[in-house]
């Protein structure tokens, strides 16, 4: 028996979500059409609205509905420091700390050389223009400490260093309040490698 084509198209469309295979896509489609038609309607409207309204901020590349986002427009941020993160979730994490008062650039991804995800997939030319606006004095590379995040940080560093930009990388080590005994070997090993002097 063939499914109606509208249903098939929905199942097919749901599969574009990360981690959603044919089985889960089918489950979602049945749920939306059978159990929660108002929810399905809200989803359809929200998706369609977001697609037309949400864009990338001119300043930080994060999602916004204006030309520039609130964070970029707010007057009390330090424009001389620019923190580069992979995703909006990373930005929110740093904001939660209240430890950073500078501005951001959100890459919306990372380089993944072995998957063929190269520099052209990230708006790096915009990042370079943003960093060289004449106000930024330091770029903080806060990409993840994964192989891909490290490759991305190095690549951006190589783009900005020849242009005379001061670069820094967020530190890595034991978690605050962490106990050696319960920390994984890789973290402890790297904390030893990157130990810092207490004298002077």
């Amino acid at each position: 028996m063939r499914s109606p084509s509208g249903l098939e198209a929905l199942i097919d469309a749901l599969r574009c979500l990360p981690g959603v295979g044919p089985k889960s896509a089918q489950r979602m489609a049945f749920y939306l059409l059978q159990r929660d038609r108002p929810g399905a309607d809200r989803l359809a409207r929200a998706l369609s609205h977001a697609l037309t309204a949400v864009r990338h901020c001119n300043g930080c590349n994060n999602f916004t509905e204006q030309a520039s986002c609130e964070l970029c427009l707010s007057g009390d941020r330090d424009g001389t420091v620019l923190c580069v993160v992979e995703t909006p979730a990373d930005l929110l994490m740093i904001e939660q700390t209240h430890a950073y008062r500078g501005q951001y650039y959100v890459l919306m991804g990372r380089l993944s050389p072995l998957d063929g995800v190269g520099p052209e997939t990230l708006a790096l030319d915009r990042l370079v223009r943003r960093a060289l606006d004449g106000v930024v004095r330091e770029v903080v590379l806060a990409t993840n400490f994964t192989v891909e995040g490290e490759a991305t940080a190095h690549y951006i560093g190589e783009l900005l260093r020849p242009r005379g930009m001061k670069l820094s990388r967020i530190a890595r080590g034991l978690p605050v309040g962490g106990e050696l005994e319960y920390t994984d070997a890789g973290t402890v090993a790297q904390a030893l490698v990157e130990r810092r002097s207490l004298t002077g």
Binding site: P113, L114, E150, A151, H154, D184, A185, A189
Partner: peptide, 21 residues
């Protein structure tokens, strides 16, 4: 974890990725 291997960074990291590919 088997043993300590210093992390590759910068160009050495790209070389490592090249070997893996």
């Amino acid at each position: 974890w088997a043993t300590f291997q210093p992390l590759l960074d910068g160009q050495a990291l790209y070389c490592g990725l090249y070997l893996n590919e």
